[in-house]
Design a binder for these strands. Sequence first.
DNA 1: TTTGAAAACTGACCCAGATCATTTTTTACA
DNA 2: TGTAAAAAATGATCTGGGTCAGTTTTCAAA
Lengths: 235, 235
Amino acid sequence: MKVVRPSCPSCLTKSLSFFSDLDKFDLINLSQNKTCNFYKKGHIVFYEGRIPTGVYCLEHGKVKLYRVGLDGKEQIVRLSTPGSLLGIRSLLSNERYTLSAATLEDSVICFINKSFFFHLTNKYPKMNADIVNYLCNQLKEAEDKIISIAQKPVRERLAESLLILNRVFKPNGHSEIKHKISLPREDLANIVGTATETVIRLLHDFKDEKLISIDGRSITLTNINGLKHTAKVFE
Amino acid sequence: MKVVRPSCPSCLTKSLSFFSDLDKFDLINLSQNKTCNFYKKGHIVFYEGRIPTGVYCLEHGKVKLYRVGLDGKEQIVRLSTPGSLLGIRSLLSNERYTLSAATLEDSVICFINKSFFFHLTNKYPKMNADIVNYLCNQLKEAEDKIISIAQKPVRERLAESLLILNRVFKPNGHSEIKHKISLPREDLANIVGTATETVIRLLHDFKDEKLISIDGRSITLTNINGLKHTAKVFE
DNA sequence: TTTGAAAACTGACCCAGATCATTTTTTACA
DNA sequence: TGTAAAAAATGATCTGGGTCAGTTTTCAAA
């Protein structure tokens, strides 16, 4: 875990994040009050059960938030992309982390301590409003997931998850370009809430149905509308 | 749906709610700015898809929040008890309702319009903090439910749900007294995320195992620790 | 370029829990 | 108090998808 020193005023993900309204002075301040680390793929950012002492800001890379069940099986609850704050829920409600976070690829993650973060939220009311909005969105997505897992068969859920991953894993701003989803089948299974073997079998079916193409470990969606149809997603 | 007129300053659920810090003046103001209705058991408070114009405050009774799937099967996402605000998530994130709300028993529910509600949240910063906390809790509970549905067998989930219902349906403050859970088996199934017949069979098993007693339609938990054990809940 | 460990894949088998059809019990209300 | 409709209960059957035990492929490091 290497220490790196990106500066906040020039941070590329700033515009995506909660810090977009900070003035120049506070951005420099933020730069000085944060610590920033490089995490190799697969490394753990924080563990469930630990007490938060601040908040993590994902600058580059991808992170999974998950919980490990009694039988050792993990359930991925959410994926995070650059600009997201990790662990903010536990910090705000003053509780231990209820999820663990691990990187899905090499990532750069900054850490901002509690007191400085709250100093900022107090100074910028807009930040508070953004945070409320963020929590609302997460709640909506969590409720969607409850309904999806409770009611839809695995086939539909997998199609749904592939569509979501396609959005999440898309390179910045290039929505039209076909890109690869590169995630172990096991992680995919832990997102969908099923067994790895079932994911593999269904991916094979999807390939036969020309919905996706598989190249080694990575997946490309070749028929988005077809997938929406099999996912029974209509909007 | 009868109009009733309980006064906010003397509202019994005030102390449980987000309005506990309002001064006398604003409580009287709130009384005058709200409309309050009596809803018979089973009636709908709001429908998924509608645009919120304010927020509902449950004064008396019980409410289920649910979504109906494509096949007509409903999934209950959450239950609300007196003092809760209904529909606040959609109001705050300025979206349509994503869930429907219906009463589980005769209830009294007040409605506070958007502008007056935001007037209050602006005036009382504590209200904002309480709301953030409330959202955090709901998010945590939603995430718990995702993991529970994805990983636990129905038997464990049913035991878990009975324990939660026992807390939710408990008469005010009397935690030690054994009371009846009176909820149709179908609703119970829609909470757990399973078929009604499966709930009935498992309740029968629980009865045989002396974990609960069944009296007609209502259920009493007779062995809380036993249920915790079958639910694999440890805290 | 080789190689060995990890990931992906395949096949066989099985069971938790869904579905459907029917009977019995409960409860609301005439 | 009787009765009809709703809810609960029971039985039979079926299947989606989990589990286990292997084989094959991929890929990163030597």
